[in-house]
């Protein structure tokens, strides 16, 4: 059941107007669309090409919004949603694959191969997700900035506009998050031995 453009537009508008429930409805629609697009991109691009979230989200956005003229705000917010979604998709898939490797079938999420990072990065993706969750406990906005940057491929200016903060602040948050995350990641890999 492909979502109609108008439906997505309505949800997006509702969401930008403060209706948080709209987001819950929006997510699965967009996720489906992302998968479709990603699959197509991977068919046309040569094998071994890595997933470019920006390209992916761009496509999804254009597709979902149809020909309608849109304002910057909702577009940025859309990217925000997409970033979060891509993170979930990647992490879920990594967990799924790890679980499968261990012989269990804990998760049965039908995921598209196209979203997968190389298998050896599964542990890293999961650890990064955990670290971001930990960071969110300390500073939710900072965690969000990293998410937008890494999983959404957003530029600093875009993040600034989305979060309604200065670009320099975004930059500083990003720069200070990196060492923190690196440390957490090195700890988690040390724990795994």
């Amino acid at each position: 059941m492909p979502p109609t453009s108008s439906e997505v537009s309505r949800l997006l508008d509702a969401w930008s107007n403060g209706d948080t429930k709209a987001l819950d409805q929006l997510m699965p629609l967009v996720a489906d669309e992302l998968r479709v697009i990603a699959r197509r991109l991977f068919k046309t691009e040569s094998a071994g090409h890595t997933l470019q979230p920006t390209a992916l989200v761009n496509e999804a956005y254009i597709k979902l919004r149809g020909q309608r003229k849109v304002q910057w705000n909702s577009r940025a917010e859309f990217f925000g949603v997409a970033a979060n979604m891509i993170r979930h998709i990647l992490v879920d898939y990594a967990r799924h694959r790890q679980a499968k490797k261990r012989g269990g079938d804990v998760l049965k999420i039908p995921l598209d191969e196209v979203f997968a990072l190389p298998e050896e990065q599964d542990a890293g993706v999961i650890a990064l997700d955990e670290a971001l969750k930990d960071l969110a406990m300390l500073d939710p906005r900072q965690s969000r900035i990293v998410e937008l940057r890494i999983f959404g491929g957003l530029k600093f200016q875009e993040i600034a506009e989305l979060e309604k903060i200065g670009r320099t602040t975004v930059w500083r948050e990003w720069k200070t998050a990196l060492p923190w995350l690196r440390r957490e990641l090195s700890r988690s890999s040390a724990c795994r031995g």
Binding site: P53, L117, Q121, V125, L178, W180, L181, R182, S186, S189
Partner: peptide, 17 residues
């Protein structure tokens, strides 16, 4: 931890930048 390392943050996710 200021310098980029070899973890997923600096290498693996280069793919996603």
């Amino acid at each position: 931890y200021e310098e980029p390392g070899v973890g997923i943050l600096d290498i693996g996710l280069g793919l996603l930048r």
